[in-house]
């Protein structure tokens, strides 16, 4: 039903088939027996119940059989999972950086991409990290999922076995735009991969202001490329006119140093028209005055 695009997918699907197969058999079997009893022994046809004694042999049997089935299922799940924890030595390494609500993928040589591009049939180890809260890296087509936990690095590995594009989804609830935290993984031929990675520019040193707003997850709601996220994009924001609501009254302001500072420290004071109060928290005590100046410098640079 679902594409099997990694070396582990088949084993996982086999475990599913074993478990679902036995489960459907039990469900249909027990339900049939139950309905048969209800019909066959209905009061109009069977007015007097027989008081059946307990039967220890029967009870032991139906304890041992489910136990055996349970152990069998455990084994299939374990057998398909175990190799997922045997990390190959010669694999390529990519670091997955999760933050509210974007994925980025850092390749060796400090090259960063927002799409995970992988060569087919090459083992890859992903180092899963998070900059803020817990996210979970999930690629349904690979049957792989592992949490990105802030403060520690989790790992997963697999071999992509099918050329194509697949979804990366966030499976651990991470706040407002959790359902929009998605990316693509693209599996390509070795030659295509090499061309792509060579063309990928190195991460250049970024302006201090940008580092600060990324670190504080400002970019989760405010884009820096003019696109519309939850709130106004930072691109061209400095010097722009904006309609805001202060104490229930609308008026027009020009975005200047003072306004930016107020917006960071008292976000509910001059709300941009159309946004609810409380949507942004105050960064007082989190972003210093000096850092605010760096942010303002950065805003001036992205007109």
């Amino acid at each position: 039903m679902l594409t099997e695009a990694s070396n582990f997918a088949e084993g996982v699907d086999l475990a599913f088939k074993v478990i679902f197969g036995i489960s459907i058999f039990l469900l249909v079997g027990i339900t049939t027996v139950m309905i048969t009893f209800v019909i066959k022994y209905r009061r109009s046809k069977h007015p007097k119940a027989e008081q059946i004694k307990d039967n220890t042999a029967l009870e032991i049997t139906w304890t041992l059989i489910p136990l055996a089935i349970a152990l069998l299922m455990f084994y299939y799940g374990y057998a398909a999972f175990r190799p997922q924890r045997d990390f190959p030595k010669d694999a390529m390494n990519v670091t997955v950086v999760a933050k509210m609500w974007v994925w980025s993928f850092v390749y060796p040589g400090n090259k960063e991409s927002n799409m995970l591009v992988l060569p087919i049939n090459k083992p890859v180890v992903l180092n899963l990290t998070s900059l803020d809260v817990i996210h979970s890296f999930y690629v349904p087509a690979f049957r792989q999922k592992e949490d990105c936990v802030p403060g520690k690095t989790n790992q997963m590995w697999f071999i992509p076995t099918m050329i194509g594009e697949y979804w990366v989804l966030c499976a651990e609830y991470c706040g407002m735009n959790h359902s929009y935290m998605e990316a693509k993984v693209k599996v390509v031929s070795q030659a295509e991969y090499e061309a792509w990675i060579n063309a990928l520019p190195k991460k250049t040193a970024e302006p201090e202001g940008l580092t600060i707003i990324k670190k504080n997850a400002c970019t989760g709601c405010h884009s820096i490329d003019g696109s519309n996220l939850v709130s106004t994009s930072f691109k061209g924001i400095y010097g722009k006119e904006s309609i805001v609501v202060t104490d229930g009254k609308e008026h027009t302001i020009t975005v200047d140093d003072a306004y930016i500072k107020t917006s960071i420290y008292e976000p509910d004071k001059d709300m941009v028209k159309g946004l609810p109060k409380g949507v942004m928290k105050s960064y007082k005590g989190i972003i210093s005055d000096d850092e605010v100046s760096r942010i303002i410098d950065y805003f001036k640079s992205i007109k």
Binding site: V12, I19, M73, G77, Y78, A79, F81, R143
Partner: peptide, 9 residues
């Protein structure tokens, strides 16, 4: 959900 490989998915 109790089985490892399938729960991961």
């Amino acid at each position: 959900l109790g089985s490892l490989a399938t729960d991961i998915h």
